[in-house]
C-alpha cells in the first residue's frame, strides 16, 4: 500500500517539471499579446504550484517515517491528497493541449542518459490514445458498409470521395462569384496602382492598344501597295501555294481587273 502510493506520487512530478522547463526559454521571446492570449504565465504558475504541493507531500511522508519507523500515513489522508494531485495534473494536461498546438518543442541537450526516454517525453499522445483514435476513425469511415464485400466497400468510398470533390468545386464557384460580386480583383478598366509611375503606365497602355489593334483589326500591319511584290523568297509553307509566276501574275491580274 505505502509503496504503491509513494510510487504514484513520485511519478507525478515528471510531466510537470519538463513542461515548466521547456516553456521558460520560449516565454521570454514571445510578444506580450501572444503570452496573454495563451496564458503561459498562468500555466507555468499552476505547474510550479503542483510541483511544490507534491514536494510537501513527499516531505510529510519522510517526516512520518523519521518520527516512527513503524507508523504509516493515514489511508484517508493519502487518498485525499492523491485525488487533489491527480485532478490538478489532469487539468493542467488538458489545458497544455490547447497551448502546445502552437508550439514546436525540441530538446537542446541529448545525451546517453536521456536519449532513451526523450521519445516518450516528447510524444503529444500516449500510444494507447493514438491506437484508440485510429480505431474510432476507422469505425466511423466503415460504418454502414462493413457487411459489403471489399469491392463494394471500395465503390462506396469512391462515391464519398466524389461527393466531397464536387462539394469542393461548388465552394470554389461560390468563392469566385463572391469575389466578382464584391469587386475583388476587378478586371474591367485600367487597374494601375501606386506602384506604377504614370509614365510607365502610359507607355504600357499605348503598347496594349497597339497590340490589340494589330491583332483584332490589323492596324499597322498593312503593306503599302508598291511593296507587295518585293518578297525575296517565300517561306516553305507558301512555296507550293504561291509559285513566283502565279503569284506575280495573280497580283497583276487583280490589279488590272480592278483599276
Amino acid at each position: 500500500m505505502d509503496a504503491a502510493a509513494l510510487g504514484a506520487a513520485a511519478g507525478a512530478p515528471n510531466p510537470a517539471a519538463p513542461v515548466g522547463g521547456d516553456q521558460q526559454p520560449r516565454t521570454e521571446r514571445l510578444s506580450a499579446g501572444v503570452q496573454q492570449q495563451l496564458n503561459l504565465e498562468g500555466m507555468r504558475a499552476r505547474a510550479v504550484g503542483l510541483y511544490k504541493a507534491i514536494s510537501r507531500i513527499l516531505e510529510d511522508f519522510d517526516a512520518i517515517a523519521r518520527a516512527n519507523p513503524n507508523a504509516s500515513p493515514k489511508w484517508q489522508d493519502v487518498l485525499g491528497q492523491f485525488s487533489m494531485v491527480s485532478m490538478e495534473l489532469f487539468n493542467i494536461v488538458e489545458d497544455i493541449k490547447k497551448v502546445s498546438k502552437v508550439f514546436v518543442v525540441y530538446p537542446r541537450n541529448v545525451n546517453a542518459e536521456n536519449a532513451a526516454i526523450l521519445p516518450v517525453m516528447l510524444s503529444s499522445k500516449l500510444l494507447p490514445e493514438m491506437e484508440a483514435e485510429e480505431a474510432t476513425k476507422r469505425d466511423n469511415l466503415l460504418s454502414g458498409i462493413t457487411n459489403l464485400t471489399v469491392s463494394g466497400q471500395i465503390e462506396k468510398l469512391k462515391t464519398r470521395i466524389d461527393m466531397i470533390g464536387s462539394a469542393c468545386e461548388t465552394a470554389e464557384k461560390v468563392i469566385a462569384e463572391s469575389r466578382k460580386n464584391y469587386g475583388l480583383g476587378a478586371r474591367q478598366g485600367a487597374n494601375l496602382g501606386p506602384t506604377l509611375d504614370k509614365a510607365q503606365a502610359a507607355k504600357i497602355q499605348e503598347q496594349e492598344g497597339l497590340l490589340r489593334a494589330a491583332v483584332n483589326y490589323g492596324e499597322g500591319l498593312r503593306v503599302p501597295g508598291d511593296q507587295r511584290q518585293m518578297y525575296s523568297s517565300l517561306p516553305s509553307h507558301l512555296v507550293d501555294v504561291l509559285p513566283f509566276g502565279d503569284g506575280a501574275h495573280n497580283f497583276g491580274d487583280n490589279s488590272g481587273l480592278f483599276l
Binding site: 469566385a176 469575389r179 466578382k180 480583383g185 478586371r187 474591367q188 478598366g189 485600367a190 487597374n191 494601375l192 496602382g193 501606386p194 506602384t195 506604377l196 503606365a201 504600357i204 497602355q205 496594349e208 492598344g209 490589340r212 483584332n216
Partner: peptide, 21 residues
C-alpha cells in the same frame, strides 16, 4: 479569376493594363 494575380482579361475591344502586383 484564378489568373487575377498575374493579369487582367477583358473583351477584345477594352484595354486592361497590367497588374501592379
Amino acid at each position: 479569376e484564378y489568373l487575377a494575380p498575374l493579369l487582367h482579361l477583358s473583351k477584345p475591344g477594352n484595354s486592361t493594363g497590367i497588374v501592379p502586383t
